[in-house]
C-alpha cells in the first residue's frame, strides 16, 4: 500500500478502494471550496485569527493586564499601535490575548451546542409522538426565556467565569438548532430510503445516528456560522454584567462594552475589538456558506 497522494490518484473516476474513494471525495470537496473565493477568504481569516491568538504572547508588545494610568486613552502611536484603554492598557495586546478567550469561548459553545441540538432535533423528529412532544416542550421552555436573562440565571447559580459563561450560552443557544434539525428530520423520516434502512434491521439509534443526522448537518453548519456573532455578543454582555470573563482577562465583547462611553471622543478604543468581532463573524459566515455547498454532494 505505497500509494502516493497524487492528483490523478485522488481524482480517479473509478477508485480502486474505499480509502481512495474517501480521499478523492475529500480532495474534491477541497477543490470545490477552493473554487469559492469568499469561502477561501473566510478560511484564511479564521486560520489567521486562530494563529494570532495562539501566538499572542509572542506577538503582543505589552502585557495585556499592565495598567499605565498616566497614559490612559492614548491615541494610536508607535508605542501603542492601537492606543490604550481607560486604564492605560495596550489595546493591540489586549485584542491578541482577547482572541484566545473569545474564540475559545465561541468554539467551546459550538462544540457543545451543535451535537446537543442535532441529537434532540433528530430524535424528536424521527420518533415523533410522545418523545417529540416532550422534547419540543422542553425546547420551547428554553426558547421562551430571553437568552441573556436565562444565561444570567445560570451563571449566577454557578460561579462567574469563562467556563460558566460557556455553559450558560450553550444551554440557551441549542433550541434553534434542535428545531432546525427536527424540521429537516421530518422531511426525510417518511422517505423510502429511511424505510429501506429500517428494513435492513438496523436499530433506531443507528438509523438516527448514521442515516438521519448527516442529512441535517449542512443546514446546521450554516445556521451556526450565522450565529457566531450573536454568541460573541452574548459572551460580551455577560462579561459586561460581570458574569463572563473576569477582569482583567481581556475579551473582545467586554472590551467593546466598557469602551462604549468613549465612542465619540476616543473612537479608537472600541474600534479595534469591534473590527475584530466583525471580521471574525464575517469570516465564519463565508466559510460556513462555502462548506454548506461542499458538504452536499448533490451540487447540481
Amino acid at each position: 500500500m505505497s500509494v502516493a497522494f497524487t492528483r490523478d490518484w485522488l481524482l480517479a473516476e473509478t477508485p480502486a478502494s474505499r480509502a481512495q474513494a474517501a480521499w478523492g471525495r475529500r480532495y474534491r470537496a477541497w477543490l470545490g471550496l477552493r473554487a469559492n473565493p469568499l469561502a477561501m477568504i473566510g478560511l484564511a481569516v479564521v486560520v489567521a485569527f486562530v494563529l494570532l491568538a495562539l501566538a499572542a504572547s509572542l506577538l503582543a508588545t505589552h502585557d495585556p493586564g499592565a495598567q499605565d494610568l498616566a497614559n490612559r486613552l492614548a491615541r494610536p502611536s508607535a508605542a501603542h499601535w492601537l492606543g490604550t484603554d481607560e486604564l492605560g492598557r495596550d489595546i493591540y495586546s489586549r485584542i491578541l490575548h482577547g482572541g484566545r478567550v473569545t474564540l475559545g469561548m465561541v468554539i467551546a459553545v459550538v462544540v457543545l451546542v451543535a451535537p446537543l441540538g442535532l441529537a434532540v432535533g433528530c430524535v424528536a423528529g424521527y420518533f415523533g409522538g410522545l418523545v417529540d412532544r416532550v422534547l419540543m416542550r422542553v425546547t420551547d421552555v428554553f426558547l421562551a426565556f430571553p437568552r441573556l436573562i436565562l444565561a444570567l440565571a445560570f451563571v449566577a447559580a454557578l460561579k462567574p467565569g469563562v467556563e460558566s459563561a460557556i455553559l450558560a450560552i450553550a444551554l440557551t443557544a441549542w433550541p434553534p438548532y434542535a428545531r432546525l434539525a427536527r424540521a429537516e428530520t421530518m422531511t426525510v423520516r417518511n422517505s423510502d430510503f429511511i424505510a429501506a434502512c429500517r428494513l435492513t434491521g438496523a436499530a433506531p439509534a443507528r438509523i438516527v445516528l448514521r442515516h438521519v443526522a448527516p442529512l441535517c448537518v449542512p443546514s446546521l453548519v450554516v445556521r451556526i456560522t450565522l450565529d457566531m456573532s450573536s454568541i460573541i455578543i452574548t459572551a460580551a454582555s455577560l462579561g459586561f454584567l460581570g458574569m463572563g470573563a473576569q477582569p482583567p482577562s481581556p475579551e473582545w465583547g467586554a472590551m467593546i462594552a466598557t469602551a462604549k462611553r468613549f465612542i465619540f471622543e476616543q473612537w479608537w478604543v472600541p474600534t479595534g475589538p469591534g473590527i475584530a468581532i466583525m471580521l471574525a463573524s464575517l469570516a465564519f459566515n463565508f466559510l460556513g456558506d462555502g462548506l454548506r455547498d461542499v458538504l452536499d454532494p448533490k451540487q447540481r
Partner: peptide, 11 residues
C-alpha cells in the same frame, strides 16, 4: 421500492 429516485440515501 417503487421509486428508484427516493429509495437510495442521497448522501
Amino acid at each position: 421500492f417503487q421509486d428508484p429516485y427516493g429509495s437510495l440515501h442521497p448522501r
